[in-house]
Computed example of a mutant assay.
Amino acid sequence: MAESGSDCANLPEEERLAWLRLARSENVGPVTFTKLLARFGTASRALEHLPQLSRNGGSARAPRICTPETATRELEAAHRLGCRIICRCEPQYPAALRAADGAPPVLTVKGSDAALAKPFVAIVGSRNASAVGTRIARTLAADIGRSGYGIVSGLARGIDAAAHEAALETGTIAVMAGGLDRPYPPQNIPLLDEICASESGAAVSEMPLGWEPRARDFPRRNRIIAGIALGLVVVEAAKKSGSLISARLAGELGRLVFAVPGSPLDPRARGTNDLIKDGAILTTEAEDVLTALAPMSGKPARAQGELFAVEAQEIAREDLTGPTTAERSQVTEALGPAPVAIDEIVRHTGLLPAQIYVVLLELDLAGRLARHPGGLVSLLPGSAR
């Protein structure tokens, strides 16, 4: 199933249901979803092969696969709430996010499709924002918005809320950590309603309706914020802050990172000042952001992630009969608790990359594989055979 921007098309309802089922099935994260699609061509065919792949990977039980009834109920619930589910291969899906490593296969959206079509700048920062920080966020969001960009943020208190409010007329997206019917924090529900009612606003989430946000869901949300945007601006951030996680994720995705300097005496500026020391673009006005982003105007944020794209291509080349039992053992024995590069596994085993990638896919689905930055992999503790 092609997912490049030029080949996007709306899915038939049967395949949309299959995409939702596959995305909601056990051990199928965004990266694994992409590899399954590369191997089998459609989500429907991938669902048929999940049990065998999981057994090949060493799982002692059948994987929990989302049923057609469960997926249908989710689609119907979304419709009742005025939401819709869009898939990564469809034209409504944000283009820059589609090009990002690990982009969610499906998004639940409430609001305007037109809002998703803009190029975006993310503005994030402290929940406990200062009056000055809030004013800076508003000014940046309004000026950047008037220049044709949408503003994306996480609907948190402080800087996030200020950025959304300033961009209500020009376009803004709120990315949620939980289901769209479980907004957080509750005091920003009126703001969320304003965003979704606007002709140029929308709320999105990769989580199913009814999902209560947990602490671990916020970094996932932050990755979506960074992926939707061409650049990410941090206005205020303490030394240990979720906004710094967003900045790191933006850098990993090849996005430009901007930081507003602050007083060395204000702990809310310590994180942003450190970002500038580490190479973030010093930002005092919207023009700093617009000038840096100008060469990217009209261009995708970057090609589909190099590591994942190579892996998907190799998986597609491997015969559907897959590796032999002996070849699977070779790969598993080459793995351990310490992260290792896939090139090292190739050299150690002498197997073709395509064979190794398929075994890694099987281990993924069996819940036995851990993936690390830079394409490194390891066996999860207690999963060795």
Rank of each mutant, 00 (worst) to 15 (best):
T67E: 13
T67W: 08
T67P: 02
P68S: 07
P68V: 13
E69R: 14
T70Y: 06
T70G: 05
T72K: 14
T72W: 04
R73P: 03
E76Q: 15
E76T: 10
A78N: 06
H79I: 13
R80F: 00
R80V: 05
L81H: 04
C83N: 01
C83A: 14
R84K: 15
I85G: 10
E90L: 01
P91N: 05
Q92S: 15
Q92W: 03
Q92R: 02
A95R: 14
L97V: 11
L97H: 01
R98N: 15
A100V: 09
D101V: 00
A103G: 02
A103E: 08
V106G: 02
L107E: 05
K110Q: 15
G111S: 08
G111Y: 02
S112Q: 09
S112M: 01
D113N: 08
D113R: 08
A115T: 01
A115N: 07
A117K: 14
A117H: 13
P119A: 08
P119H: 03
F120M: 12
F120P: 03
V121Y: 05
V121T: 12
V121Q: 09
V121W: 05
I123C: 07
V124T: 11
G125I: 08
S126I: 06
N128G: 13
N128Q: 15
N128W: 12
A129C: 10
A131Y: 10
A131E: 04
G133S: 11
R135K: 14
I136S: 06
I136E: 04
A137E: 07
A137Q: 05
A137W: 14
R138D: 05
L140G: 05
A142K: 12
D143A: 14
D143H: 07
R146M: 14
S147V: 08
G148S: 09
G148N: 04
G148L: 10
G150V: 11
V152Q: 04
V152S: 09
V152G: 02
S153Q: 04
L155D: 04
A156F: 02
G158L: 02
D160T: 01
D160A: 03
A161V: 00
A162S: 00
A162T: 04
A163K: 07
A163L: 10
E165D: 10
A167F: 11
A167T: 03
E169A: 14
E169M: 10
T170I: 13
T170L: 13
G171L: 09
G171Y: 01
G171C: 12
A174S: 13
V175N: 11
V175W: 11
M176D: 06
A177W: 14
G179M: 03
G179W: 08
L180M: 03
L180H: 12
D181K: 01
D181T: 02
R182M: 15
P183T: 00
P183E: 09
P183N: 06
Y184K: 07
Y184E: 13
P185T: 11
P185C: 11
P185L: 06
P186Y: 06
